[in-house]
Computed example of a mutant assay.
Amino acid sequence: MSKFSKYWIERYFRSKDPEAGHRLHRAYERMQRSKEIWDDTKMGPKQEVRGRILQQVRLSIDISRKEAQRPENWRLMGIAASLLVIVGTIIFTWHSGSMTTHDIAPGGNHLELILTDGTVIQLDSIKRPYHSKEMGLMIESTQEGRLRLYSDLHALSTEPVHIRTPKGGQHQIELPDGTIVWLNADSELIFPARFSLEKRQVTLLGEAYFEVSSDSTRPFIVATLYQEIEVLGTRFNICAYANGPNIKTSLLEGKVRIKLKNNTQEIILKPGQQSLLSEGILKVQPVKMREVIDWTAGDFIFDQESLGEIMSKIERWYDVHTEWKGEIKQIQMSGEVSRTKSLLQVLDILHLSTGVYFELKGRTIVISNDAIK
């Protein structure tokens, strides 16, 4: 990194100027390509720079926690996060107190079709239309990057279709009725190759965002482990992982009816509302949809979210496991970071935001309140 880049670091510390962040980002990209190493004479003492970054970012986060509703503070968090990705990654070795010699790339577009005999077909790599006679289904890629599914009208199969994203995967699909579905990591969608004349019903395990094709004669129904969501034409997100503490249904547009399977409780959501099913109790609360569907835009957005919840998302997207040392899952933070960043880049940001330490061992993240010796 040149003295020019050091100038922009100093400018950031003085004014938190967003242009300084952009300049630093470009300088960092050049440094990555040329494989330069940290040079104290040109860039300043590494530990001193690290300490100043830590102080600046924690100040930013304290402001965000107190005034989380003010847009200018979200902008400040974004600037702080940008600098952390740039400088924190360069000096990544201090983030866990030990030398981490490897990194893990972010997830990508991966989708699997599960046949009745258990055979797994990798759909994200298909180059031409795929025809599953067994399922009565035809699949092709679109120019938008999604996979479009067609019913084979001549097929006699009544077997349900099982499509899933592995950990570290996501994909966008178009169902035979024209409904578009974004599947998040470690999720599965089960549906018939041909919907009935009365209803369009699918089963979801995991998380998905739906843009339902309008059909007033056939309601669209999403079944999860404990509830059913009925719609006519709308946009909404469902997070219903089997190992999650609750089920969240968030409505962006339209109207949905939610029914519990084991009792008569029923609610209707309006746009900007979220239903939360926890320990058998269903309640409605306001929600910021940008934070709910952040993953469809390639981001992680946290607003006073617990470290335990954050790390569950990290586990699914980077296909890793966590090992906790100490009672630290309830620590909360706010911020924003791109899902295109490597795992170490994200862990750097979490460390500076929370003070918690992370060590990457293989595909296991050890999380502790103390620096790992």
Results as ranks from 00 to 15, higher is better:
Trp8Met: 07
Trp8Phe: 10
Ile9Met: 11
Ile9Trp: 10
Ile9Phe: 13
Ile9Ser: 06
Ile9Cys: 07
Arg11Tyr: 08
Glu19Asp: 11
Arg26Leu: 13
Glu29Leu: 15
Arg30Val: 07
Arg30Pro: 06
Met31Gly: 14
Arg33Gln: 14
Lys35Ser: 14
Glu36Pro: 03
Gln47Ile: 04
Asp62Arg: 12
Arg65Asp: 15
Arg65Pro: 03
Arg70Glu: 00
Asn73Val: 00
Leu76Thr: 00
Leu83Asn: 03
Ile86Ser: 14
Ile86Trp: 09
Phe92Pro: 06
His95Arg: 12
Ser96Ile: 05
Ser98Ile: 01
Met99Gln: 10
Asp103Asn: 10
Ile104Ala: 01
His110Leu: 14
Leu111Phe: 06
Leu113Gln: 13
Leu115Trp: 09
Thr116Ile: 11
Asp117Leu: 14
Asp117Val: 13
Pro129Leu: 10
Pro129Val: 12
Ser132Lys: 12
Ile139His: 14
Ser141Ala: 13
Thr142Glu: 12
Thr142Trp: 06
Arg148Tyr: 12
Tyr150Asp: 12
Tyr150Lys: 12
Ser151Thr: 13
Ser151Lys: 07
Leu153Gln: 12
Leu156Cys: 03
Thr165Ile: 03
Gly169Phe: 09
Gln170Ile: 00
Gln170Gly: 03
Glu174His: 04
Glu174Pro: 06
Glu174Trp: 02
Ile180Asp: 05
Ile180Phe: 07
Asp186Phe: 00
Ile190Val: 15
Arg194Gly: 07
Ser196Pro: 05
Leu204Ala: 04
Leu204Trp: 06
Leu205Ser: 01
Leu205Lys: 01
Gly206Leu: 01
Glu207Val: 08
Tyr209Phe: 13
Phe210Ile: 09
Glu211Trp: 09
Ser214Leu: 14
Ser214Thr: 11
Pro219Gln: 08
Phe220Pro: 06
Gln227Val: 03
Leu232Pro: 02
Thr234Tyr: 09
Ile238Gln: 01
Ala242Asp: 15
Gly244Cys: 05
Gly244Ala: 10
Gly244Met: 04
Asn246Arg: 11
Asn246Met: 11
Ile247Trp: 08
Thr249Gly: 02
Ser250His: 04
Leu251Lys: 05
Leu251Phe: 04
Glu266Asp: 13
Gly272Ala: 08
Gln273Trp: 04
Gln274Thr: 05
Leu277Cys: 09
Ile281Met: 15
Leu282Tyr: 08
Val287Ser: 03
Thr296Ile: 08
Ala297Glu: 02
Gly298Arg: 03
Phe300Met: 01
Ile301Thr: 01
Phe302Trp: 04
Glu305Lys: 10
Leu307Ile: 15
Glu309Ala: 05
Ile310Arg: 03
Ser312Lys: 14
Ser312His: 11
Trp317Pro: 05
Tyr318Glu: 10
Tyr318Arg: 08
Lys325Leu: 11
Lys325Tyr: 08
Gly326Leu: 02
Glu327Gly: 02
Glu327Gln: 05
Gln330Ala: 11
Gln332Trp: 02
Glu336Thr: 00
Arg339Ala: 02
Leu344Ile: 11
Leu347Cys: 08
Asp348Asn: 11
Leu352Arg: 07
Val356Ala: 02
Val356Phe: 01
Phe358Asp: 07
Phe358Ala: 10
Leu360Ser: 05
Ile367Gln: 04
Asn369Thr: 04
Asn369Ile: 00
